[in-house]
Design a protein around this nucleic acid. Structure first.
Length: 926
DNA sequence: ATGGGTCCT
DNA sequence: AGGACCC
């Protein structure tokens, strides 16, 4: 099929080739065709390099409109339908058939399609939205945590199909599926028809022409693009189907041969549909775009400049003399946007990496005292540090951005920022867990930056603040010993690794973990990793708001988000208040969650990878294994699981001066560190199996698991496409409402610009999270959730029959009068350190529900929340002997765990471990 | 506008 | 550090 095209081989790597369009006359054969076949580094430097390449290739095309790439690529643009609203509906499916708006300040930033039927639109003011739809349910969407989680989950899901996924905002992704299309065509795994819509210019002439030419229309371009794009539409349909089945997300897709066209054409049929554009239709399709402003890449500034030149419509831009245009704009930009106006876009799909900045931002009507600024700074820092812990990297720069209101011209001035390096000794507090100290010191830095921006002796009026952590670098592999290492100030200033340079990713490149993702062993279809990591407690000051996250990472270092995200979904009272402004925003639930302390993220990743490896290696020989989460176990049991010894031996290994309650809330690796430290202190080192694998080499070689990520299945009701082929699905996620009493946020005197939900003040009361991909297998017949007089908790019922694998706990919690029977299964494929135990016995445990708890309400809680409460209640009489009865059946569990072996954690120098232990000991004394 | 992000100059 | 762009 590609006999008309030249083929290029990338010897280094995948060796998939791209046929060149015969008429595109590529004169420079050294051009990397979008770099899509090369070993892709996905760090900052690489992204920059690729952009550079693109610019160069654009330059070479310069004023002629010949594309370097022709129609050689197959690009899919995936655009999630009303993304925030879908996330909220995932969290609370009761909202699905209600008009739903997601509110930030006074804006409805997006809304579901039910609401759109009432005339509500994106970015509509709350008042107007409520006028149009009095029943509109509003959910606060200012905290982006959940959106970010789902967003990354989706992007990573898409990376199962191809590593060439580029994120655009939270809800859009480009996929370069050229190689997949080629594969399918070569293997004959194709159909002849385009799935979904095919863009056609509705015009009688064209229809007549088409009739006359008959099938020849398809032969107009002989480069093979029709076959590729047709297959592309089939790939897109598969992907959308899977997204719906696996993540319960609907989206639109556009399929074409470049990013511009795939993105633009995706919007032709919304929602939940897909459209394919073939090259012959490009000119007519572009003409339908209309105004230049609608071209991605031409923003408001440029379109104003263009308008000043009389350029408003695409045709104006197409016809404008390029040399004149170069006079008025940046010459390169002039060329690029004129190409865009013809539908020409050679920009590559640049594989996404981890975020390059982690920032938090809030706008308000007024913030005019230093005290308020400080309070905001503190709030930001608490939230950001949590995200840093989840991320695992260390920032080297702190940036403060503000927006002032200058009363003079009454104009919202643009933002101003100041940034400075963060001294290494301060950031070392991040790894050593001295988070209070860290927060305090960063606060001082931020306040210093603030004084550089604002003369605090004069009155000031801020309308926005933003704090960003930048220059994120990986910590050294041994996080424990790195507690005491001070980074070189020059770290991260590294420039100029050419793409493909093998040194990239080793030292100072921020995101090495994806670099290996596309090595020559990479399979095009990568099974999804499913390791989940528990969050863990941390020690933020009490006035911090808890914006807890439940992000974990795949072995590749990717974010993996539990399906239910561990958050109680919720809706509040949605009745309209006469005063629309003061109307209560339906709150996203702020669960009373534990703070999280994540030491050595990277180390944990390595350990998880080891476990994963074991899991894969032994999957077929071992059946299901059973294990309680650490939060449900006694310290002794944990100790014996870590040391590989019997509980009776391990009992003494827990340092006496460590608070058991705190200990129980720690993540397993920290627990293990403490135990091992104690062990080594006593000179009782127990050697376990040697496990040399660590770091990213191992992590990134993961490409073969037997199971896909487990998520709920929902009956599909696609309006088009292949809905009829879909298998029935069994799982419905019912999540219901929550009323939680909220307390005012600690915002000082800052006036919010609109109604806003209030976060719960931080409480360090909940246990470590369970992996929250948990689903309740079965459920009590308590029927509809009752709204009791007391604050009502979330109701959630999930049925899933899909087998889960990996380190995922499946919980069954059944309400039995006053007791709850918890069945905790771990369907781990078979780790050597996990016991083969009798699941029927060891996994059943009866808990007491405290009398003050509404059992019906409790029985309707999501399983992970239930478990957290159960674990918490079981610890309440914490150190008393009676409390042991509330813990899981020790005998059974200890039988289970004592047989197990954890992978060897390399023994660290004692210096590092001591600091951890001392940290918790000092906490204990407080 | 919101609360983020990206890259380029 | 700011400005452009994206959502």
């Amino acid at each position: 099929m590609d006999e008309h095209g030249m083929e290029f081989e990338d010897n280094e790597d995948e060796s998939w080739s791209l046929p060149f369009n015969g008429d595109s006359s590529p004169s420079n054969t050294s051009i990397d065709i979008g770099c899509q076949g090369s070993a892709c580094m996905t760090d900052t430097q690489d992204r920059r390099n690729r952009k550079q390449q693109h610019r160069l290739s654009s330059n070479s095309a310069d004023s002629c409109m010949i594309s370097t790439l022709g129609h050689t690529r197959t690009i899919i643009h995936i655009d999630i339908d009303c993304f925030y609203a879908q996330v909220e509906m995932m969290r609370n499916p009761k909202l699905r058939d209600k008009p739903l708006g997601v509110q930030q300040k006074y804006l409805v930033v997006t809304c579901n399609y039910v609401a759109r039927e009432y005339g509500v639109t994106k970015l509509m003011g709350v008042k107007e939205a409520l006028d149009r739809c009095p029943n509109l349910v509003l959910v606060s969407g200012e905290d982006l945590t959940h959106y970010r989680q789902v967003s990354y989950k989706i992007s990573e899901f898409l990376q199962q199909y191809t590593p060439h996924v580029e994120r655009l905002g939270m809800d859009e992704n480009f996929l370069d599926v050229s190689h997949l299309a080629k594969q399918r065509l070569e293997s004959g795994d194709t159909r002849s028809d385009v799935i979904g819509h095919e863009y056609k210019f509705e015009n009688e002439d064209s229809i007549v022409r088409e009739d006359k030419c008959g099938k020849d229309r398809l032969a107009t371009c002989t480069c093979g693009c029709h076959e590729r794009l047709t297959v592309g539409s089939q790939i897109a349909a598969d992907i959308r189907d899977a997204l719906h089945q696996e993540i319960n997300i609907t989206c639109c897709a556009g399929i074409s041969y470049n990013k511009l066209l795939s993105k633009l054409v995706a919007g032709k049929h919304k929602p939940n549909q897909q459209t394919t554009l073939f090259p012959e239709q490009t000119a007519q399709f572009m003409a339908t775009v209309g105004q230049v402003r609608r071209i991605p890449g031409i923003g408001s500034t440029t379109s104003k400049k263009l308008a000043a030149l009389g350029i408003v419509l695409l045709q104006d831009l197409q016809q404008f003399d390029i040399s004149d245009l170069k006079q008025e704009l940046e010459p390169k930009q002039a060329v690029v946007i004129q190409q865009l106006s013809f539908g020409v876009d050679d920009s590559p799909v640049v594989t996404f990496g981890r975020p390059q900045t982690i920032s938090d931002e809030d706008s308000f009507k007024k913030c005019s005292t230093v005290k308020d600024v400080r309070s905001k700074v503190k709030e930001f820092l608490c939230s950001l540090i949590k995200r840093l812990l989840d991320d695992g990297r260390t920032p080297q720069t702190l940036r403060l951005t503000i927006r002032k209101l200058t009363t003079a011209d009454k104009k919202w001035t643009s933002r101003e920022s100041r940034q400075c390096p963060i001294p290494g000794h301060i950031m070392s507090c991040l790894s050593s867990g001295k988070l209070e100290r860290l927060t305090d010191q960063l606060e001082e830095i931020a306040m210093t930056l603030f004084t550089k921006l604002v003369d605090t002796k004069e009155p000031f009026h801020l309308t926005l603040m933003n704090i960003a952590f930048c220059s994120l670098v990986e910590k050294s592999k041994n996080a424990i010993s790195s507690f005491f290492t001070v980074r070189s100030p020059r770290h991260g200033v590294d420039h100029g690794h050419p793409p493909g340079d093998s040194h990239v990713g080793q030292k100072s490149v921020p995101t090495p973990d994806r670099g290996k993702q596309q090595n020559s062993l990479q399979k095009w279809v990568i099974k999804s990793p499913e390791k989940l990591i528990n969050n863990s407690p941390e020690d933020f000051p009490d006035n911090c708001e808890a914006r807890s996250t439940n992000v974990s990472r795949s072995p590749q270092g990717c974010l993996v988000v539990p399906g239910h995200s561990g958050m109680s979904p919720g809706i509040g009272d949605a009745r309209k208040n006469d005063n629309g402004e003061s109307r209560k925003i339906v709150e996203s639930v702020k669960k009373d969650s534990s703070e999280l302390k994540t030491l050595s993220c990277q180390k944990r990743k390595a350990e998880e990878a080891i476990e994963d490896k074991h899991s894969r290696n032994k999957k077929t020989s071992l059946g299901r294994n059973i294990r309680w989460s650490s939060s449900a176990r006694s310290p002794e049991e944990i100790a014996c699981s870590y040391t590989g010894r019997k509980c009776s031996e391990a009992r003494l290994s827990i340092p006496k001066d460590v608070d058991m309650e705190i200990f129980l809330q720690l993540p397993r690796d920290i627990q293990r560190e403490i135990l091992q430290e104690e062990e080594s202190r006593k000179g009782q080192m127990y050697s376990t199996q040697t496990e040399k694998s660590s770091g990213y080499e191992e992590l990134n070689s993961v490409n073969d698991t037997d199971n896909n990520c487990s998520t709920s299945h929902v009956r599909s009701d696609y309006p088009e496409g292949r809905g009829g082929q879909r298998k029935d699905s069994r799982t419905i996620l019912h999540t219901a409402s929550v009323k939680e009493s909220s307390s005012p946020s600690d915002c000082g005197g800052i006036e919010p610009t609109g109604d806003r939900s209030e976060d719960f003040p931080f409480k360090q009361s909940m246990s470590t999270r369970l992996p929250s991909d948990n689903k309740l297998h079965t459920h009590t017949g308590s029927g509809q959730p009752s709204m009791s007089e007391r604050p009502t908790k979330t109701v959630s019922v999930v049925n899933t029959t899909k087998k889960q694998s990996g380190d995922i706990l499946n919980l069954k919690l059944n309400s039995v009068d006053d007791n709850v029977t918890g069945v905790c299964e771990e369907t781990r494929g078979g780790d050597s350190h996990i016991d083969d135990c009798d699941s029927n016995h060891s996994a059943n445990q009866t808990y007491q529900i405290p009398p003050h708890v509404d059992k019906e309400v409790f029985s309707n809680l999501p399983s992970d929340i239930q478990m957290e409460y159960l674990c918490q209640w079981s610890r309440v009489p914490k150190m008393s002997p009676e409390s042991q009865g509330a813990l899981p059946d020790k005998k059974q569990i200890s039988t289970a765990v004592s047989q197990g072996r954890l992978p060897n954690t390399k023994h660290k120098p004692n210096a590092g471990k001591t600091s951890i232990l001392q940290f918790f000991q000092s906490k204990n004394k407080k």
